[in-house]
Design a protein around this nucleic acid. Structure first.
Lengths: 213, 213
DNA sequence: CGGGATCCCGTCAGATACTG
DNA sequence: CAGTATCTGACGGGATCCCG
C-alpha cells in the first residue's frame, strides 16, 4: 500500500511519491471541480480499471490528499485543504499539455470535468476583469457546460442556462482557444456553431479563454 | 514505445502522456539545472535502473521534451525550449511536496540537482531584490553548493567559492527554510554550523529562502 | 569507461467478473 | 452503487553483459 519511493529527499520526489502514480493526478483534476462519488469518478475516467481507482483513492486518502466523506446514504470523495493546494500544479501541467494537443485521436473522449479544468487553465482573469459579465452556454461534443464570467471570477457548471451566447463545437474548440483560428473563421468553417446570441460575443469568449500554442 | 494513453482529450492527460511515467519528471528536474550526460543522470537518480533511464530518455526525446546532443566525444541530454517550459510545473510540484517532507527516511539521499531545484523553489525574489548581493557556500550532507543571490536573481552551482557566509547542515536544513526553526535556534541546536562569515547572515539566508509548511 | 542493451523476475496495471 | 476478487500481460527493478 505504501507508495513506491524514489530514494531521494527532495520536494519533487516527495510530491511524486504522493501523487505520481498513474491516474492519481487525473483523479485530483476531477476533484478540483468538486466532490465526486466513486461512480462519478469512474465515469469521468472512462478507462480506469475499478481496482486501480479503489487503490488510488486509498493511497491518496492515506497521503492526506483526499477525504472520504459519508453523506447519509452516499459516499463522496473530496480534496483536503492540502490536496486543494495542488490546483497550481494541475493548472500549470494543463497549460503545458494543452500546447502539445493535436487532433483528438480515435477513442479519445472529452469529459465535463476535464473540459472545465481546461477552461480554468485558459481563463485570463486580467482580460475578463475589464469586460462586462457574460454567460455562455457551450456544447462541446456531448458535454454541456454553463460558463459564467463576472469580473475576474469564473464559474463553470454542468448543464445549460440563460446565456448571452450559446454555441456548439467539437474538440477543435482548442484551435479557437489557441488562436490558431479567429472567431470569424471558426464560425465560417463550421468549427463553432452559434446557436443563440450575437456572433460578436465569440470574440469576447476567445479573448477571455486564451492559451497560445 | 508509445506512451500509454488515458483515452481523454485534455490538457492534463496530454501532459501526463508525455511526462507522467515513473522517473520522467525527476529526469526533467535534473535537466532544468543544466545539460547532463547519461552517467550524470544515473548518478543523480541513484535508484533508477539503467534500462528505465534509457527508455525514458527515448520517450522524452520522441515527445519533443529533451534533445540528445553529441558533443565531440560525449553525448549530452538537454531540455528543448518546450521542455524548459515545464519549470513552473516542477517548481509548483516541488513547493507542494516540500510541505509534505518529514524527516529523511533511511537510505534517502540528497543530490546536488534536487537540492538546487529545492532552493530555486524556496527562493523569494521579491525579498531578495531589497537585499545586498550575497554569496553562500553551503555544505548540505555531502553536497557542496555555491549560492549567489544578486537582486532578484539566483544562481546555484556545485562546488564552493569565496562566500559571505559558509555553513554546513544536514537534511534538516528544511526546518530552517520552513520557518520551523529560527536561524538562532538552528545554530544553537547544531542543525546549522557556521563555518565562516557572520552568524547574522543566516537570517538573510532564511528570509531569502523560505517556504512555509 | 561512458552509454547503453539484455535478461529474468516481481509488482503493478488492465480487463472482467462478482458481491454486499 | 461502491467497491472486491481474480487472472493476465505489461512495466519497473536489479544485475549483468556488450560495444564503441
Amino acid at each position: 500500500m505504501a507508495a513506491r519511493d524514489y530514494g531521494q529527499y527532495g520536494g519533487v520526489s516527495s510530491a511524486l511519491e504522493l501523487v505520481g502514480e498513474r491516474w492519481a493526478l487525473l483523479i485530483i483534476r476531477d476533484l478540483l471541480v468538486g466532490p465526486r462519488r466513486y461512480g462519478e469518478l469512474a465515469g469521468g475516467l472512462a478507462r480506469i480499471p475499478s481496482n486501480i481507482l479503489a487503490a488510488r483513492l486509498k493511497e491518496l486518502q492515506a497521503g492526506g490528499v483526499i477525504r472520504r466523506v459519508p453523506h447519509s446514504r452516499v459516499i463522496v470523495y473530496e480534496l483536503t485543504p492540502y490536496g486543494r493546494e495542488l490546483e497550481p500544479v494541475i493548472l500549470a501541467l494543463g497549460a503545458w499539455g494543452f500546447k502539445a494537443m493535436g487532433e483528438p485521436r480515435e477513442a479519445q473522449i472529452i469529459t465535463p470535468d476535464s473540459m472545465t479544468m481546461d477552461l480554468r487553465t485558459a481563463f485570463q482573469p486580467l482580460v475578463a476583469a475589464s469586460l462586462p459579465p457574460t454567460a455562455y452556454a457551450a456544447r462541446l461534443g456531448t458535454v454541456e457546460l454553463f460558463i459564467r464570467v463576472e469580473g475576474s471570477d469564473l464559474d463553470v457548471v454542468r448543464g445549460g442556462g440563460p446565456a448571452d451566447l450559446a454555441f456548439a463545437a467539437g474538440a477543435d474548440i482548442r484551435r479557437l482557444i489557441s488562436g490558431e483560428l479567429t472567431p470569424d473563421r471558426a464560425i465560417t468553417t463550421g468549427v463553432v456553431q452559434v446557436l443563440g446570441g450575437r456572433n460578436e460575443l465569440l470574440d469576447r469568449f476567445a479573448t477571455t479563454f486564451h492559451l497560445a500554442a
